[in-house]
């Protein structure tokens, strides 16, 4: 079981309010990602759940029990840190076993559990090495191994992939997702990378300046962002946000259109413009276009497109994919 419930959680460091007030429900077995720009309070929120920080006011319930004032070790949670935080003077085996040892498990049970975890994570042949003899990805696995042997109610991940190179990041992303499917335990995962959020989460919590901007499934956030912040944060390349006369035409303060929802053609289109930069990725082509009267627009066309800087281009947004926001930045529903 691993239901986590936050009620009116507030955190201030002295006079600085990091989190004004947050209510959130996390269901058992859910993979929840906290995402937001740096300084948005996502890591602090995770540490509040872990018990590494005190809440200033509010409640943290785990499985219906008030854990607000319970020390971290007694909350039944495991955490994987950004720096892995492996014990450098211990072997991989001792690292994974440490939590069990602290809990006073018998040596046979510890051995059995450590070996099972190591097998799950492909670490069996490294058990007697020291962390410094391992690669980044292996260290990451040890950190995860240390978390899973304790059979926690929920796993907490604090930007666990940010120290890995891009290729390894993709691989570890898959491994963690598979681990979640296998264990079906609640996972809370903090990242600033919206791609990680979109690919891994059952439910994304978008945070900004300590407030929840929106909670929802990945495609929900993609299709119906609740406000300008979420619209701009989710999706890559970023959604084009236009205001002024063009927005007024749609009866909105701002309109948004994702680059992939703009059709491009050489000669005709709703908007005319000149290509300033063309990025050819092979699978896609990103065009950064200066459109007349509107400004800089990014468009994404599938496949290879024979356009270069300086070429004229016509752009046509898909009308059903235009997002409208009022002058306060909130989404306007049709």
């Amino acid at each position: 079981m691993g239901r986590i419930h936050l009620k009116g959680v507030r955190k201030a460091f002295g006079d600085v309010i990091v989190i004004p007030s947050i209510d959130l429900d996390i269901a058992d077995g859910e993979f929840v990602v906290f995402v937001g720009p740096s300084g948005c309070g996502k890591s602090t929120l995770l540490r509040l759940i872990a018990g590494l920080e005190d809440v200033t006011s509010g409640r943290v319930d785990i499985d219906g029990v008030d854990m607000t004032n319970v020390p971290p070790a007694k909350r039944g949670l495991s955490m994987v840190f950004q720096s892995y935080a492996l014990y450098p003077h211990m072997s991989v085996r001792s690292n994974i076993a440490f939590g069990l040892k602290m809990a006073g498990e018998s040596p046979e049970i510890i051995k059995q559990k450590v070996e099972k975890a190591a097998a799950t994570l492909n670490l069996s042949s490294y058990l007697d090495r020291k962390p410094r003899q391992l690669s980044g990805g292996q260290r990451q696995r040890v950190a995860i191994g240390r978390a899973i042997v304790r059979e926690p109610k929920a796993f907490l991940f604090d930007e666990p992939l940010s120290n890995l190179d891009a290729a390894l990041r993709v691989q570890m992303r898959l491994e963690i997702t598979q681990l979640h499917q296998q264990l079906a335990t609640t996972m809370i995962y903090v990242t600033h990378d919206q791609v990680e959020a979109m690919t891994m989460a059952d439910k994304i919590v978008v945070l900004n300046a300590g407030n929840i901007e929106q909670v929802g499934a990945p495609l929900e956030l993609y299709n119906t962002p609740a406000n300008l912040f979420v619209a701009g944060f989710i999706g890559s390349p970023k959604m084009n946000l236009l205001n002024g006369a063009i927005a007024a035409k749609f009866g909105a303060g701002t309109i948004g259109i994702r680059p992939e929802h703009i059709a491009t053609a050489r000669d005709r289109g709703e908007w005319q413009g000149v290509v300033r930069v063309a990025e050819h990725l092979g699978s896609d082509t990103f065009l950064h276009v200066d459109a007349e009267t509107i400004g800089r627009i990014t468009a994404r066309a599938p496949g290879e497109l024979a356009l270069a800087a300086g070429d004229k281009v016509g752009l046509t947004p898909r009308p059903d994919r235009i997002h409208r926001f009022d002058s306060d930045g909130r989404a306007m529903r049709a």
Binding site: L52, P71, A73, L77, S83, A85, Y87, M102, R146, R150
Partner: peptide, 27 residues
């Protein structure tokens, strides 16, 4: 010494005394 390592020990259920004896002192 990175503070995260001591926090990891705390998450692993170590008391302050064990945190110092098993983790901080050897490091």
């Amino acid at each position: 010494i990175p503070g995260e390592i001591l926090e990891a020990a705390r998450m692993d259920g170590a008391t302050l005394w064990r945190e110092i004896v098993y983790v901080l002192a050897p490091m």
